[in-house]
């Protein structure tokens, strides 16, 4: 029987299996094992979590292949890694390493200020960030098989993730209420391909899985994003920059599954020690806001 790999169904299907789960940023084997033990559905292998990238500045790039492969060898769950926006050679490298998902991420320093990676060229699926529906559909048009709201990574401030989830959700709801003949202008205004706009208007959802990322630091944040319609959450700095990563990781996993049960979320929130030190997004000068990267 003919075997087809890298089809949309295989790429998008992989994201379907991650739903209801937490994907955690890890910088070494030890953290990856803690994440797996805590019930993470996948880990994102990177050299510096967003909070450190923010603190240290400089150019943030793809991680060392040795570090990524050490993590692949250490855990049985999927391993993701980040490539810079538009840096298709970093993506080729990550594909050759056999990572399970590539995050074309605004957390790293962008390489191309006009174009994103042509993700149809790859067998490995991509996840991309979005702040609104037009951006999400442009990424899907380029081949992204999973979308995450961007939020503002490395802050511990969930307000931007909230804004982006409301924005994406609101725009989807507006499309579903439009007449067919209004969708052409809607597509023009959100700078998105008409066919995808039409599909979203008909189904009332994105054609791919939608996760949330950026600033999630507590079980309550995770549950909030799930109630806002996220299919799952990425937690970057929020876990391993906190006082008790082991407990916080497993607490966030519980809250993501039982997001509708305040008693479970309350129990998960007990005795977690210190949360990551936060930065208010409003205090960040505009050039330091990562969520504004991507076009």
């Amino acid at each position: 029987m003919a075997q087809e790999s890298g089809t949309s169904r295989v790429k998008r299907g992989m994201a379907e299996m991650l739903k209801g789960g937490v994907i955690m940023d890890v910088v070494n084997v030890e953290q990856a094992k803690i994440a797996e033990d805590a019930g993470a559905v996948a880990v994102m292998a990177l050299e510096r979590v967003p909070a450190d990238i923010r603190a240290q500045g400089g150019v943030a790039r793809m991680s060392d292949p040795d570090m990524i492969q050490a993590i692949q060898a250490a855990v049985s769950i999927p391993v993701m890694a980040k490539a810079r926006i538009g840096h298709f050679v970093e993506a080729q490298i990550l594909q050759s390493l056999g990572v399970d998902y590539i995050d074309e991420s605004e957390v790293l320093t962008p390489t191309d200020y006009a174009n994103h990676i042509n993700k149809w060229d790859f067998t490995i699926p991509f996840v991309c960030g979005a702040t609104n529906l037009g951006e999400a559909l442009r990424r899907i048009n380029e081949g992204a098989a999973m979308i995450r709201s961007k939020g503002e990574a490395g802050t511990g401030d969930v307000s931007n993730a909230m804004t982006h989830m409301r924005q994406i959700g609101g725009e989807i709801r507006r499309l579903t209420s439009m007449r067919d003949d209004e969708l052409y202008v809607a597509a023009k205004e959100m700078q998105a391909p008409y066919d995808l706009v039409k599909e979203v208007a008909a189904t009332g959802k994105l054609p791919v899985v939608l996760f949330t990322a950026g600033g999630i630091a507590t079980p309550a944040d995770a549950a909030l994003m799930m109630q806002m319609g996220a299919d799952g959450v990425f937690i970057g700095s929020g876990i391993f920059k906190s006082g008790d990563p082991k407990r916080r990781a497993s607490a966030c996993v519980k809250a993501t599954t039982f997001y509708n049960d305040p008693k479970v979320v309350a129990d998960a929130s007990r005795g977690l020690g210190e949360a990551m030190v936060g930065i208010n997004v409003a205090d960040l000068p505009a050039p330091h806001r990562l969520s504004e990267r991507g076009w």
Binding site: M1, A2, Q3, E4, S5, T7, R9, V10, G13, M14, Q72, P78, Q95, G98, V99, D100, Y101, T123, I124, P125
Partner: peptide, 10 residues
């Protein structure tokens, strides 16, 4: 295998 080896078939 890993995701790169994932596939569909009859």
């Amino acid at each position: 295998g890993r995701q790169i080896d994932s596939f569909e078939s009859d």
